[in-house]
Design a binder for these strands. Structure first.
Lengths: 214, 214
DNA sequence: CGATAAATTGACCGGTTGGTAAAATATTAC
DNA sequence: GTAATATTTTACCAACCGGTCAATTTATCG
Protein backbone atom coordinates (compact mmCIF):
# COMPACT_ATOMS: atom_id res chain seq x y z
CA UNK A 1 0.00 0.00 0.00
CA UNK A 2 2.70 2.44 0.92
CA UNK A 3 5.33 2.37 -1.77
CA UNK A 4 8.36 4.18 -0.51
CA UNK A 5 10.52 2.81 2.25
CA UNK A 6 7.84 1.40 4.47
CA UNK A 7 6.29 -1.77 5.78
CA UNK A 8 7.85 -4.19 3.36
CA UNK A 9 11.44 -3.20 4.03
CA UNK A 10 12.70 -4.43 0.66
CA UNK A 11 11.51 -2.77 -2.51
CA UNK A 12 9.53 -4.67 -5.04
CA UNK A 13 10.94 -5.42 -8.46
CA UNK A 14 8.02 -3.47 -9.89
CA UNK A 15 8.77 -0.50 -7.70
CA UNK A 16 12.35 -0.47 -8.89
CA UNK A 17 11.37 -0.68 -12.53
CA UNK A 18 8.57 1.86 -12.45
CA UNK A 19 10.49 4.44 -10.47
CA UNK A 20 13.29 4.13 -13.00
CA UNK A 21 10.85 4.57 -15.83
CA UNK A 22 9.33 7.64 -14.22
CA UNK A 23 12.71 9.25 -13.64
CA UNK A 24 13.73 8.55 -17.20
CA UNK A 25 10.55 10.16 -18.53
CA UNK A 26 10.79 13.04 -16.07
CA UNK A 27 14.33 13.76 -17.21
CA UNK A 28 13.03 14.14 -20.75
CA UNK A 29 10.24 16.45 -19.76
CA UNK A 30 11.92 18.55 -17.08
CA UNK A 31 15.02 19.11 -19.18
CA UNK A 32 12.89 20.26 -22.08
CA UNK A 33 10.40 22.51 -20.27
CA UNK A 34 11.86 23.36 -16.86
CA UNK A 35 10.19 22.63 -13.57
CA UNK A 36 7.18 24.89 -13.84
CA UNK A 37 6.78 24.22 -17.54
CA UNK A 38 6.58 20.47 -17.09
CA UNK A 39 3.34 18.77 -16.07
CA UNK A 40 2.80 15.52 -14.23
CA UNK A 41 0.48 14.37 -16.97
CA UNK A 42 3.23 14.83 -19.54
CA UNK A 43 5.65 12.82 -17.46
CA UNK A 44 3.12 10.11 -16.73
CA UNK A 45 2.29 9.87 -20.43
CA UNK A 46 5.95 9.61 -21.36
CA UNK A 47 6.40 6.93 -18.74
CA UNK A 48 3.38 5.04 -20.06
CA UNK A 49 1.25 5.26 -16.97
CA UNK A 50 -1.59 7.25 -15.45
CA UNK A 51 -1.03 10.31 -13.33
CA UNK A 52 -2.34 8.78 -10.09
CA UNK A 53 -0.13 5.81 -10.72
CA UNK A 54 2.90 8.05 -11.01
CA UNK A 55 1.89 9.83 -7.83
CA UNK A 56 1.77 6.44 -6.15
CA UNK A 57 5.53 6.24 -6.55
CA UNK A 58 6.39 9.90 -5.99
CA UNK A 59 4.19 11.90 -3.69
CA UNK A 60 4.62 15.18 -5.56
CA UNK A 61 5.97 16.67 -8.76
CA UNK A 62 8.70 18.25 -6.71
CA UNK A 63 9.74 14.88 -5.28
CA UNK A 64 10.41 13.58 -8.78
CA UNK A 65 12.39 16.67 -9.66
CA UNK A 66 14.29 16.57 -6.41
CA UNK A 67 15.24 12.92 -6.85
CA UNK A 68 16.47 13.64 -10.34
CA UNK A 69 18.64 16.54 -9.22
CA UNK A 70 20.06 14.69 -6.24
CA UNK A 71 21.03 11.69 -8.32
CA UNK A 72 22.65 13.85 -10.89
CA UNK A 73 24.62 16.25 -8.78
CA UNK A 74 27.08 13.69 -7.50
CA UNK A 75 27.81 12.31 -10.95
CA UNK A 76 27.99 15.78 -12.37
CA UNK A 77 30.92 16.73 -10.20
CA UNK A 78 32.79 13.49 -10.77
CA UNK A 79 35.16 14.92 -13.42
CA UNK A 80 36.22 17.78 -11.18
CA UNK A 81 36.60 15.42 -8.22
CA UNK A 82 38.96 13.37 -10.35
CA UNK A 83 41.33 16.29 -10.82
CA UNK A 84 44.43 14.89 -9.17
CA UNK A 85 46.80 17.19 -7.31
CA UNK A 86 49.61 14.69 -7.80
CA UNK A 87 49.10 14.21 -11.50
CA UNK A 88 50.68 16.11 -14.35
CA UNK A 89 48.93 19.51 -14.33
CA UNK A 90 48.59 19.91 -18.07
CA UNK A 91 47.38 16.36 -18.48
CA UNK A 92 44.95 16.70 -15.58
CA UNK A 93 43.35 19.80 -17.04
CA UNK A 94 43.23 18.24 -20.47
CA UNK A 95 41.43 15.20 -19.03
CA UNK A 96 39.05 17.39 -17.09
CA UNK A 97 38.03 19.29 -20.19
CA UNK A 98 37.57 16.12 -22.16
CA UNK A 99 35.51 14.44 -19.45
CA UNK A 100 33.26 17.45 -19.10
CA UNK A 101 32.77 17.57 -22.85
CA UNK A 102 31.98 13.87 -22.91
CA UNK A 103 29.32 14.45 -20.29
CA UNK A 104 27.77 17.14 -22.43
CA UNK A 105 27.70 14.70 -25.31
CA UNK A 106 26.46 11.70 -23.36
CA UNK A 107 24.14 13.38 -20.87
CA UNK A 108 22.73 16.47 -22.51
CA UNK A 109 19.40 16.16 -20.75
CA UNK A 110 21.07 16.13 -17.37
CA UNK A 111 23.03 19.21 -18.35
CA UNK A 112 19.89 21.02 -19.42
CA UNK A 113 18.04 19.97 -16.29
CA UNK A 114 20.80 21.53 -14.26
CA UNK A 115 20.98 24.62 -16.46
CA UNK A 116 17.24 25.15 -16.17
CA UNK A 117 17.49 24.95 -12.41
CA UNK A 118 20.37 27.41 -12.16
CA UNK A 119 18.86 29.78 -14.68
CA UNK A 120 15.74 30.09 -12.59
CA UNK A 121 17.72 30.90 -9.49
CA UNK A 122 18.37 27.37 -8.23
CA UNK A 123 15.30 27.40 -5.95
CA UNK A 124 15.61 23.69 -5.24
CA UNK A 125 19.34 23.27 -4.86
CA UNK A 126 20.81 26.47 -3.53
CA UNK A 127 22.10 24.59 -0.50
CA UNK A 128 23.97 22.15 -2.72
CA UNK A 129 25.68 25.04 -4.43
CA UNK A 130 26.87 26.88 -1.36
CA UNK A 131 27.63 23.55 0.33
CA UNK A 132 29.17 20.56 -1.45
CA UNK A 133 29.77 22.36 -4.73
CA UNK A 134 31.56 25.33 -3.23
CA UNK A 135 33.61 23.03 -0.99
CA UNK A 136 34.79 20.97 -3.92
CA UNK A 137 35.60 23.99 -6.04
CA UNK A 138 37.47 25.63 -3.19
CA UNK A 139 39.52 22.49 -2.76
CA UNK A 140 40.39 22.20 -6.43
CA UNK A 141 41.12 25.89 -6.68
CA UNK A 142 43.82 25.32 -4.09
CA UNK A 143 45.26 22.52 -6.20
CA UNK A 144 45.38 24.73 -9.25
CA UNK A 145 46.88 27.59 -7.29
CA UNK A 146 49.59 25.23 -6.04
CA UNK A 147 50.38 24.28 -9.62
CA UNK A 148 50.70 27.94 -10.50
CA UNK A 149 52.95 28.67 -7.53
CA UNK A 150 55.13 25.74 -8.53
CA UNK A 151 55.43 27.29 -11.98
CA UNK A 152 53.85 24.29 -13.64
CA UNK A 153 51.11 26.23 -15.36
CA UNK A 154 50.70 29.88 -16.22
CA UNK A 155 49.22 32.29 -13.73
CA UNK A 156 45.45 32.63 -13.76
CA UNK A 157 42.44 32.81 -11.47
CA UNK A 158 41.49 29.20 -10.65
CA UNK A 159 37.84 30.00 -10.01
CA UNK A 160 37.34 31.77 -13.29
CA UNK A 161 39.30 29.05 -15.04
CA UNK A 162 36.85 26.48 -13.70
CA UNK A 163 33.90 28.66 -14.72
CA UNK A 164 35.33 28.89 -18.21
CA UNK A 165 35.71 25.15 -18.50
CA UNK A 166 32.19 24.59 -17.22
CA UNK A 167 30.61 27.09 -19.53
CA UNK A 168 32.44 26.16 -22.72
CA UNK A 169 31.83 22.44 -22.34
CA UNK A 170 28.24 22.62 -21.15
CA UNK A 171 27.46 25.06 -23.93
CA UNK A 172 27.40 22.16 -26.39
CA UNK A 173 24.60 20.49 -24.42
CA UNK A 174 22.63 23.50 -23.20
CA UNK A 175 22.77 25.56 -26.39
CA UNK A 176 22.72 22.57 -28.71
CA UNK A 177 19.94 24.04 -30.86
CA UNK A 178 21.96 27.17 -31.43
CA UNK A 179 25.16 25.28 -32.15
CA UNK A 180 23.34 23.15 -34.70
CA UNK A 181 21.66 26.17 -36.26
CA UNK A 182 24.96 27.99 -36.70
CA UNK A 183 27.07 25.07 -37.84
CA UNK A 184 24.38 23.83 -40.20
CA UNK A 185 25.44 20.70 -41.99
CA UNK A 186 29.06 21.43 -41.31
CA UNK A 187 30.78 18.79 -39.24
CA UNK A 188 27.71 16.72 -38.51
CA UNK A 189 30.01 13.89 -37.58
CA UNK A 190 33.24 15.31 -36.27
CA UNK A 191 31.53 17.99 -34.20
CA UNK A 192 32.55 16.47 -30.92
CA UNK A 193 36.17 16.00 -31.92
CA UNK A 194 36.32 19.50 -33.36
CA UNK A 195 35.05 20.98 -30.14
CA UNK A 196 37.40 18.85 -28.06
CA UNK A 197 40.42 19.87 -30.09
CA UNK A 198 39.43 23.51 -29.99
CA UNK A 199 38.90 23.60 -26.23
CA UNK A 200 42.05 21.71 -25.41
CA UNK A 201 44.08 24.07 -27.52
CA UNK A 202 42.35 27.14 -26.15
CA UNK A 203 42.89 26.22 -22.54
CA UNK A 204 46.29 24.62 -22.84
CA UNK A 205 47.82 27.27 -25.02
CA UNK A 206 46.46 29.72 -22.49
CA UNK A 207 47.97 27.89 -19.60
CA UNK A 208 51.23 26.47 -20.85
CA UNK A 209 54.25 28.14 -19.38
CA UNK A 210 56.06 29.64 -22.28
CA UNK A 211 59.20 27.81 -23.11
CA UNK A 212 61.54 30.11 -24.95
CA UNK A 213 61.37 28.90 -28.54
CA UNK A 214 64.78 28.37 -30.12
CA UNK B 1 -10.61 50.55 -29.62
CA UNK B 2 -8.00 48.58 -31.45
CA UNK B 3 -4.62 49.35 -29.95
CA UNK B 4 -1.96 48.03 -32.26
CA UNK B 5 -1.31 49.49 -35.66
CA UNK B 6 -4.84 50.16 -36.71
CA UNK B 7 -7.35 52.89 -37.32
CA UNK B 8 -5.54 55.73 -35.62
CA UNK B 9 -2.30 55.45 -37.55
CA UNK B 10 -0.25 57.21 -34.89
CA UNK B 11 0.19 55.55 -31.50
CA UNK B 12 -1.04 57.26 -28.42
CA UNK B 13 1.36 58.50 -25.79
CA UNK B 14 -0.40 56.17 -23.35
CA UNK B 15 0.06 53.24 -25.68
CA UNK B 16 3.74 53.94 -25.93
CA UNK B 17 4.17 54.22 -22.18
CA UNK B 18 2.09 51.22 -21.21
CA UNK B 19 3.60 48.90 -23.76
CA UNK B 20 7.00 49.87 -22.48
CA UNK B 21 5.96 49.18 -18.93
CA UNK B 22 4.54 45.79 -19.87
CA UNK B 23 7.68 44.76 -21.70
CA UNK B 24 9.85 45.85 -18.81
CA UNK B 25 7.77 43.78 -16.38
CA UNK B 26 7.60 40.85 -18.78
CA UNK B 27 11.37 40.82 -19.08
CA UNK B 28 11.61 40.42 -15.33
CA UNK B 29 9.13 37.60 -15.21
CA UNK B 30 10.03 35.69 -18.37
CA UNK B 31 13.74 35.79 -17.61
CA UNK B 32 13.13 34.43 -14.14
CA UNK B 33 10.60 31.69 -14.90
CA UNK B 34 10.80 30.92 -18.60
CA UNK B 35 7.91 31.18 -21.02
CA UNK B 36 5.69 28.45 -19.65
CA UNK B 37 6.60 29.20 -16.08
CA UNK B 38 5.58 32.83 -16.34
CA UNK B 39 1.95 33.90 -16.01
CA UNK B 40 0.15 36.89 -17.45
CA UNK B 41 -1.12 37.78 -14.00
CA UNK B 42 2.43 37.97 -12.70
CA UNK B 43 3.46 40.25 -15.53
CA UNK B 44 0.37 42.40 -15.19
CA UNK B 45 0.99 42.74 -11.46
CA UNK B 46 4.59 43.70 -12.01
CA UNK B 47 3.49 46.25 -14.58
CA UNK B 48 0.92 47.65 -12.17
CA UNK B 49 -2.14 46.87 -14.23
CA UNK B 50 -4.90 44.32 -14.54
CA UNK B 51 -4.61 41.27 -16.73
CA UNK B 52 -7.32 42.29 -19.19
CA UNK B 53 -5.68 45.66 -19.45
CA UNK B 54 -2.40 44.03 -20.36
CA UNK B 55 -4.19 41.89 -22.93
CA UNK B 56 -5.56 45.07 -24.42
CA UNK B 57 -2.04 45.98 -25.49
CA UNK B 58 -0.78 42.51 -26.36
CA UNK B 59 -3.29 40.03 -27.67
CA UNK B 60 -1.58 37.01 -26.14
CA UNK B 61 1.15 35.99 -23.74
CA UNK B 62 3.11 34.79 -26.71
CA UNK B 63 2.88 38.21 -28.37
CA UNK B 64 4.59 39.81 -25.38
CA UNK B 65 7.30 37.18 -25.38
CA UNK B 66 7.77 37.45 -29.09
CA UNK B 67 8.12 41.23 -29.00
CA UNK B 68 10.69 40.96 -26.24
CA UNK B 69 12.79 38.44 -28.16
CA UNK B 70 12.60 40.35 -31.41
CA UNK B 71 13.69 43.59 -29.81
CA UNK B 72 16.52 41.92 -28.05
CA UNK B 73 18.03 39.84 -30.80
CA UNK B 74 19.29 42.75 -32.82
CA UNK B 75 20.98 44.40 -29.86
CA UNK B 76 22.33 41.09 -28.70
CA UNK B 77 24.36 40.63 -31.85
CA UNK B 78 25.67 44.17 -31.88
CA UNK B 79 29.09 43.30 -30.39
CA UNK B 80 29.74 40.60 -32.96
CA UNK B 81 28.55 42.87 -35.74
CA UNK B 82 31.10 45.41 -34.58
CA UNK B 83 33.98 43.00 -35.14
CA UNK B 84 35.94 44.89 -37.78
CA UNK B 85 37.83 43.00 -40.45
CA UNK B 86 40.09 45.98 -40.97
CA UNK B 87 40.91 46.50 -37.31
CA UNK B 88 43.78 45.05 -35.34
CA UNK B 89 42.81 41.38 -34.82
CA UNK B 90 43.96 41.08 -31.23
CA UNK B 91 42.35 44.35 -30.28
CA UNK B 92 39.14 43.45 -32.09
CA UNK B 93 38.80 40.17 -30.24
CA UNK B 94 39.67 41.80 -26.96
CA UNK B 95 36.94 44.39 -27.52
CA UNK B 96 34.46 41.74 -28.52
CA UNK B 97 35.04 39.80 -25.32
CA UNK B 98 34.76 42.91 -23.22
CA UNK B 99 31.59 44.07 -24.90
CA UNK B 100 29.96 40.67 -24.47
CA UNK B 101 30.94 40.61 -20.83
CA UNK B 102 29.56 44.10 -20.36
CA UNK B 103 26.28 42.95 -21.81
CA UNK B 104 26.15 40.09 -19.33
CA UNK B 105 26.70 42.60 -16.56
CA UNK B 106 24.31 45.25 -17.82
CA UNK B 107 21.58 43.10 -19.33
CA UNK B 108 21.48 39.86 -17.37
CA UNK B 109 17.72 39.51 -17.76
CA UNK B 110 18.00 39.69 -21.52
CA UNK B 111 20.71 37.06 -21.42
CA UNK B 112 18.58 34.74 -19.31
CA UNK B 113 15.54 35.32 -21.48
CA UNK B 114 17.58 34.21 -24.44
CA UNK B 115 19.15 31.30 -22.57
CA UNK B 116 15.74 30.07 -21.45
CA UNK B 117 14.52 30.15 -25.01
CA UNK B 118 17.49 28.28 -26.44
CA UNK B 119 17.55 25.80 -23.60
CA UNK B 120 14.00 24.82 -24.33
CA UNK B 121 14.72 24.24 -27.98
CA UNK B 122 14.20 27.77 -29.30
CA UNK B 123 10.56 27.07 -30.24
CA UNK B 124 9.86 30.74 -30.91
CA UNK B 125 13.02 31.85 -32.67
CA UNK B 126 14.48 28.93 -34.55
CA UNK B 127 14.16 30.89 -37.77
CA UNK B 128 16.22 33.73 -36.35
CA UNK B 129 18.97 31.28 -35.51
CA UNK B 130 19.25 29.59 -38.85
CA UNK B 131 18.67 32.93 -40.58
CA UNK B 132 20.19 36.22 -39.42
CA UNK B 133 22.31 34.69 -36.66
CA UNK B 134 23.93 32.06 -38.85
CA UNK B 135 24.51 34.59 -41.59
CA UNK B 136 26.32 36.94 -39.26
CA UNK B 137 28.42 34.21 -37.70
CA UNK B 138 29.36 32.84 -41.10
CA UNK B 139 30.47 36.29 -42.15
CA UNK B 140 32.58 36.87 -39.06
CA UNK B 141 34.02 33.37 -39.23
CA UNK B 142 35.41 34.35 -42.61
CA UNK B 143 36.99 37.44 -41.10
CA UNK B 144 38.66 35.40 -38.39
CA UNK B 145 39.80 32.81 -40.88
CA UNK B 146 41.37 35.57 -42.96
CA UNK B 147 43.26 36.79 -39.90
CA UNK B 148 44.55 33.29 -39.33
CA UNK B 149 45.62 32.91 -42.96
CA UNK B 150 47.43 36.20 -42.74
CA UNK B 151 49.28 34.86 -39.71
CA UNK B 152 47.90 37.57 -37.47
CA UNK B 153 46.41 35.23 -34.92
CA UNK B 154 47.05 31.58 -34.11
CA UNK B 155 45.20 28.86 -35.95
CA UNK B 156 41.85 27.82 -34.53
CA UNK B 157 38.29 27.00 -35.52
CA UNK B 158 36.45 30.35 -35.81
CA UNK B 159 33.05 28.86 -35.06
CA UNK B 160 34.15 27.16 -31.89
CA UNK B 161 36.06 30.25 -30.90
CA UNK B 162 32.88 32.27 -31.14
CA UNK B 163 30.98 29.64 -29.17
CA UNK B 164 33.62 29.80 -26.47
CA UNK B 165 33.39 33.55 -26.22
CA UNK B 166 29.61 33.41 -26.08
CA UNK B 167 29.50 30.74 -23.41
CA UNK B 168 32.18 32.11 -21.12
CA UNK B 169 30.81 35.64 -21.11
CA UNK B 170 27.13 34.76 -20.89
CA UNK B 171 27.90 32.33 -18.10
CA UNK B 172 28.23 35.25 -15.69
CA UNK B 173 24.65 36.30 -16.39
CA UNK B 174 22.95 32.97 -16.90
CA UNK B 175 24.63 31.07 -14.08
CA UNK B 176 24.91 34.06 -11.81
CA UNK B 177 23.48 32.18 -8.82
CA UNK B 178 26.10 29.50 -9.16
CA UNK B 179 28.93 31.97 -9.63
CA UNK B 180 27.83 33.80 -6.51
CA UNK B 181 27.47 30.59 -4.53
CA UNK B 182 30.96 29.42 -5.44
CA UNK B 183 32.75 32.74 -5.06
CA UNK B 184 30.94 33.53 -1.84
CA UNK B 185 32.00 36.89 -0.46
CA UNK B 186 35.18 36.82 -2.48
CA UNK B 187 35.51 39.66 -4.89
CA UNK B 188 32.05 41.08 -4.38
CA UNK B 189 33.24 44.26 -6.02
CA UNK B 190 35.96 43.42 -8.48
CA UNK B 191 34.14 40.41 -9.86
CA UNK B 192 33.55 41.95 -13.23
CA UNK B 193 37.13 43.13 -13.65
CA UNK B 194 38.46 39.75 -12.48
CA UNK B 195 36.37 37.95 -15.04
CA UNK B 196 37.32 40.38 -17.76
CA UNK B 197 41.02 40.04 -17.05
CA UNK B 198 40.75 36.27 -16.90
CA UNK B 199 38.89 35.94 -20.18
CA UNK B 200 41.08 38.35 -22.07
CA UNK B 201 44.17 36.48 -20.93
CA UNK B 202 42.65 33.11 -21.67
CA UNK B 203 41.62 33.98 -25.19
CA UNK B 204 44.52 36.19 -26.12
CA UNK B 205 47.22 33.95 -24.77
CA UNK B 206 45.48 31.19 -26.69
CA UNK B 207 45.45 33.20 -29.88
CA UNK B 208 48.60 35.24 -29.89
CA UNK B 209 51.10 34.12 -32.42
CA UNK B 210 54.14 33.16 -30.47
CA UNK B 211 56.90 35.63 -30.90
CA UNK B 212 60.23 33.98 -30.26
CA UNK B 213 61.15 35.23 -26.82
CA UNK B 214 64.59 36.79 -26.38
C1' DC C 1 -5.96 -22.42 -3.88
C1' DG C 2 -7.10 -18.34 -0.84
C1' DA C 3 -5.70 -14.33 1.55
C1' DT C 4 -3.13 -10.39 1.91
C1' DA C 5 -0.67 -6.64 0.19
C1' DA C 6 0.76 -4.01 -3.97
C1' DA C 7 -0.38 -1.68 -8.09
C1' DT C 8 -3.59 0.65 -11.08
C1' DT C 9 -7.57 3.18 -12.45
C1' DG C 10 -11.40 6.59 -13.13
C1' DA C 11 -13.82 10.04 -11.11
C1' DC C 12 -13.22 14.04 -8.94
C1' DC C 13 -11.67 18.66 -6.48
C1' DG C 14 -10.15 23.27 -5.58
C1' DG C 15 -7.13 26.51 -7.53
C1' DT C 16 -4.91 28.59 -11.45
C1' DT C 17 -4.32 29.76 -16.22
C1' DG C 18 -4.89 32.19 -20.73
C1' DG C 19 -8.20 34.65 -22.62
C1' DT C 20 -13.12 37.02 -23.51
C1' DA C 21 -17.37 40.15 -23.20
C1' DA C 22 -19.33 44.02 -22.02
C1' DA C 23 -19.95 47.75 -19.38
C1' DA C 24 -17.79 51.81 -17.21
C1' DT C 25 -14.48 55.41 -17.32
C1' DA C 26 -11.14 58.57 -19.12
C1' DT C 27 -9.23 61.03 -23.03
C1' DT C 28 -9.25 63.43 -27.22
C1' DA C 29 -11.09 66.02 -31.26
C1' DC C 30 -14.19 69.24 -32.77
C1' DG D 1 -19.50 70.91 -24.13
C1' DT D 2 -20.25 66.87 -26.50
C1' DA D 3 -19.53 63.19 -29.37
C1' DA D 4 -16.30 59.83 -30.67
C1' DT D 5 -12.70 57.12 -29.35
C1' DA D 6 -9.29 55.05 -26.31
C1' DT D 7 -8.55 52.89 -21.91
C1' DT D 8 -9.69 50.34 -17.84
C1' DT D 9 -12.36 47.36 -14.93
C1' DT D 10 -15.55 43.72 -13.40
C1' DA D 11 -17.27 39.48 -14.05
C1' DC D 12 -16.65 35.47 -16.22
C1' DC D 13 -15.31 30.94 -18.79
C1' DA D 14 -13.37 26.72 -20.34
C1' DA D 15 -9.20 24.23 -20.02
C1' DC D 16 -5.67 22.70 -17.29
C1' DC D 17 -3.00 21.79 -13.16
C1' DG D 18 -1.35 19.24 -8.99
C1' DG D 19 -3.13 16.17 -6.12
C1' DT D 20 -6.80 12.96 -3.52
C1' DC D 21 -9.99 9.13 -2.96
C1' DA D 22 -12.27 5.01 -3.19
C1' DA D 23 -12.74 1.18 -5.79
C1' DT D 24 -10.74 -2.33 -8.69
C1' DT D 25 -7.29 -5.23 -10.54
C1' DT D 26 -2.99 -7.62 -10.20
C1' DA D 27 0.92 -9.81 -8.00
C1' DT D 28 2.82 -12.29 -4.01
C1' DC D 29 3.10 -15.74 -0.62
C1' DG D 30 1.80 -19.60 2.39
Amino acid sequence: MIPRAAKTQRRTRIQEEKEEKILEAALDVFSAYGFRGATIDQIADAAGMSKPNLLYYFRTKEAVHRTLLDRMLFTWLEPLRALDADGNPEQEIRSYIRRKLEMSRDFPRESRLFANEILQGAPHIEDELTGPLKTLVDEKALVIRAWIKAGKIAKCDPYHLIFSIWSTTQHYADFDVQVRAVLGDKAGEGRFEDAARHLEELFLRGLTVEKPSV
